[in-house]
């Protein structure tokens, strides 16, 4: 089930370095939320704090609150591993497991967690996930070939299939198409439009047109200087951001008059 995420007063640190300051935002279920902004302003950092991947980095910690459908993700009794099961993630560079076949990559979330599942059920799940990622027709004849043998765009869709196979509520995507050619990018964008029926999607992108094409809501991150924390400058419906933003900085960035 897609879920709603409410972020309040979030500060994100690397050790003593405050990377992102004071984020307040509500992310709607069954929609695509895009995060844009210049490099180094903390988009990835913010995204990774949503599924508690941020604390994997040594010294990574957060202050503030992220609540998903009433559940405080940073509550004292919450296991980060559980959070990551509910909030899936797709990375900038496709990273299929090199030791595993295409099939095993998709089944990785089940297999690695030692969940017991009948072979026929697992077959179904793999097929469903690959269909969901628009990859089934391309790989159905070679499910047992290594996942690393696919093209970059196929690998990225394989990673999406792997992420949706564990049936998360939310899907985070950190520049999922930035390493891909235009055709693969289009395939991923089409895919996102399908996926938002079932998931809450948050996507970081450097590509303004992409944000405009796929998202309902857009957040603009910016930072006032090197060593300064990044901030969420504006969060509004995508249409408004791209036609009539509230903030001057947003308009400058979108119209390319940035920096």
């Amino acid at each position: 089930m897609a879920k709603r995420i409410d972020v309040s007063d979030l500060n994100i640190y690397y050790g003593n370095f405050l990377a992102v300051e004071n984020v307040n935002v509500s992310i709607e279920p069954r929609s695509i939320t895009a995060l844009i902004g210049p490099s180094g302003c903390g988009k990835s950092t913010f995204l990774r704090s949503i599924n508690r991947m941020h604390e994997v980095v040594p010294g990574g910690r957060v202050e503030g609150k992220i609540v998903m459908d009433g559940q405080d993700l940073y509550g004292a009794d919450v296991d980060p591993v559980d959070v990551r099961r509910q909030i899936g993630m797709v990375f900038q560079r496709p990273n299929p497991f090199p030791t595993m076949s295409i099939y095993e990559n998709v089944a990785a979330g089940i297999r690695l967690n030692n969940k017991k599942m009948r072979k026929s059920d697992l077959d179904d799940l793999v097929e469903r996930s690959l269909r969901g990622a628009n990859l089934w027709n391309e790989v159905k004849d070679r499910l047992n070939r290594p996942g690393a043998g696919l093209s970059g765009g196929q690998q990225q869709r394989l990673c999406i299939a792997r992420a949706i196979a564990v049936e998360p509520d939310v899907l985070l995507m950190d520049e999922p198409a930035s390493a891909l050619d235009p055709i693969s990018t289009l395939a991923i964008e089409d895919l996102m439009a399908d996926l938002k029926e079932r998931f809450t999607i948050v996507i970081v992108t450097h590509n303004m047109q992409q944000a405009a094409r796929v998202s309902e809501q857009t957040g603009f991150f910016n930072l006032s200087g090197v060593g300064q924390p990044g901030r969420l400058i504006e969060f509004n419906p995508t249409e408004k951001i791209f036609s009539n933003p509230d903030q001057k900085a947003t308009e400058d960035y979108i119209s390319g008059r940035f920096g």
């Binding site: 994997v56 899936g88 993630m89 297999r111 990673c159």
Partner: peptide, 23 residues
């Protein structure tokens, strides 16, 4: 072993020790 593989595993909700053993 690229860190990305460890992160890919964590992001699937796999605990660290199992990530080490299985990835």
């Amino acid at each position: 072993v690229p860190n990305e593989l460890r992160e890919a595993s964590y992001a699937l909700g796999v605990p660290k020790w199992r990530t080490i053993v299985k990835v």
